[in-house]
């Protein structure tokens, strides 16, 4: 039986602020990521997606701390390690070799005064291992190979400064850099946001292709449900720091069981086919420093009942399936949620 490559259990991440109590940006997050699987973290701005993504690789900013939980990474040979207990040196080895991150904002992820070639040299050098020091030729060869993998022309790109390249090219270079040491897990934060639509499409296709070829598992953070539908095997919806629904892409898109997920889906227009009526979720997401009692979604929820304001519903499995295919939602009325869309105009 395949074991998950990454198991996250009850992970909570807190930001300490000037106030006495910190702000919990991710609370009791648990999930399993299986080898080769692709999981989308979706939700509105400020729901804790990016914090969780950074937390997986312990890349949190100084004020952020993992306050509880564990993140277990399993090697191919069955050995496992808790990322939260790694020392500095082991952590450095873990990052990029086993798991790598593509940060949000391709535009700003490069040092503007260094050529692309130097970024590759830096990355490869700082993570090199083994007996032999990498020669310049080794690095050039590896960089060229990586760039060709994302369909860029190495000779031109390696000589360029970041400002000489388009947003789409920079995003591809970031992906190539992240894959430099053949990690088994790739975390991508909003990989297509702020890119033009045709460029978005080419990044999506690139990711499909790379995943097929290299077989890495992927966690990607997005507010774009379209991207989740394109790339994800599994989808996890986050609200106010918690995963409130998780399931296969089919489960979540066709039979959402949390009113918040339903709300998100009903707010997104499709391009192909009928034109459904769109509706918005009333109100706005709560401040993480001042969460409503009980279910944090209750003030915006159309299904709210008295119990919802008192007890916080746990993420409960609705459909049990093998391994990674279960469908779970954190809603007291999950069984009653109906999802239908009214069609305004037929195609």
């Amino acid at each position: 039986m395949t074991e998950p490559i990454l198991s996250v259990r009850d992970l909570s991440i807190m930001y300490t602020t000037g106030r006495k109590t910190g702000v919990t940006a991710a609370a009791d997050v648990s999930f399993d990521l299986y080898p080769g699987q692709s999981m989308a973290l979706v939700g509105e701005s400020g729901c804790g997606k990016t914090t969780l993504g950074l937390g997986l690789l312990r890349l949190l900013p100084r004020l952020g701390k993992v306050s509880s939980g564990e993140i277990v990474y399993r090697f191919k040979d069955g050995m496992s390690l808790d990322i939260l207990r790694l020392g500095k040196e082991d952590l450095r080895k873990f990052r990029w070799h086993e798991a790598a991150m593509v940060f949000q904002g391709a535009m700003n992820s490069f040092n503007p005064v260094l050529r692309i070639g130097e970024h590759f040299t830096d990355t490869l050098r700082s993570h090199e291992g083994g007996e032999r020091r990498l020669t310049r030729a080794d690095i050039a060869e590896r960089a060229a190979e990586l760039l060709r993998m994302v369909r860029l022309e190495p000779a031109r790109v390696l000589r360029s400064f970041p400002h000489e390249l388009s947003g789409g090219m920079k995003q591809r270079i970031l992906i190539a850099l992240a894959l430099a040491l053949e990690p088994q897990v790739l975390v991508l934060d909003e990989p297509t946001t702020a890119l033009d639509i045709l460029t978005q499409r080419s990044i999506v296709e690139q990711l499909h292709e790379l995943r097929e070829r290299l077989g890495f598992a992927m966690v990607f953070i997005t507010h774009d449900l379209g991207l989740a539908a394109e790339l994800a095997d599994r989808v996890a919806t986050m609200y106010a720091g918690r995963i409130i629904e998780t399931g296969t892409a089919e489960d979540v898109f066709y039979e959402p069981r949390h009113p918040y997920t339903v709300g998100l889906i009903k707010a997104v227009p499709p391009v192909v086919g009928d034109l459904p009526e769109l509706s918005s979720i009333p109100g706005s997401p709560p401040s993480l420093a001042d969460l409503p009692s009980g279910c944090s979604f209750h003030p915006r929820c159309g299904y709210v009942r008295d119990e919802c304001t008192g007890t916080r519903p746990e993420l409960t499995v609705l459909t049990e399936r093998a391994l990674d295919e279960g469908h779970a939602a954190a809603c007291l009325r999950a069984g009653e949620i109906e999802y239908t869309r009214k069609v305004v105009a037929s195609a």
Partner: peptide
């Protein structure tokens, strides 16, 4: 055709 459809 490039638009990502919110429908798997």
């Amino acid at each position: 055709s490039a638009v990502c459809e919110p429908d798997p």
